[in-house]
Amino acid sequence: MRQFYGATLSSRLMLGTAQYPSPAILTDAFRRSDAGVATVSVRREAGRGGEGQDFWDLIAALGVKVLPNTAGCHSVREAVTTAHMARELFDTTWIKLEVIGHSDTLQPDPFGLVEAARILCDDGFEVFPYTTEDLVLADRLLEAGCQVLMPWGAPIGTGLGLNNIYGLRSLRAHFPDVAMVIDAGLGLPSHATMAMELGYDAVLLNTAVSKAGDPAQMAKAFACAVEAGFLAHQADPMPARDMAAPSTPVIGKAFLE
């Protein structure tokens, strides 16, 4: 199992905690997924009813590592301030860094992302940048101090799967020693299998599970899919070819014309 900032995870599946029909279903989904990481966020305290504390108690009971995000941040300053608040609230140096550059696609702002990553890495954070499959951007993030990359499969919440197989394969090939997680855009377990078959170390998803008709069963399906893709990658798949090749031996075939 690849290490993430020195941590060996119990699973290759990271799961978000948003948009579940109920806290009980969230808990059930996590149990069936066997996910090793839960992503969380920080948001304004609406009242003083302890809603945040209740949520935190629920997450703590899952016994998984917590990865806070800077979701919704559109500037470096916002992202850095949010990261500091998250570090204090969740008592972790891990941060899933999102600096959003476009409201419709929620694609990362590559320039702000690198700047924020550098600031946070210098300040002792262990940054998981939500990025694209762009090789140059990946290089800049690694130079900034990131030891993990999290390229998108497709825009957040779309469920489209892996939009740029060539780009993701190329990214994996160029940085074979870097821990990499496909983050966002997955909709089906087969998308997760494909990501793992490409050699990625883990997948991170939320909506595909939380918005399924049966989130717990979908969580289990993703767990199986991730494992299948990982095993397939380890098994060294056969190369694809354009022309057919018979698998049954031709020699010894009876002459029946």
Partner: peptide, 25 residues
């Protein structure tokens, strides 16, 4: 930071943000 709150002065018109743990993806 929590440790700095007792030394932090607030003046009229300041904008205070208070956040708690929440669900996230």
């Amino acid at each position: 930071a929590k440790t700095a709150r007792a030394q932090t002065q607030v003046v009229a018109g300041d904008r205070l943000e208070i956040v708690t743990p929440r669900q996230g993806g």
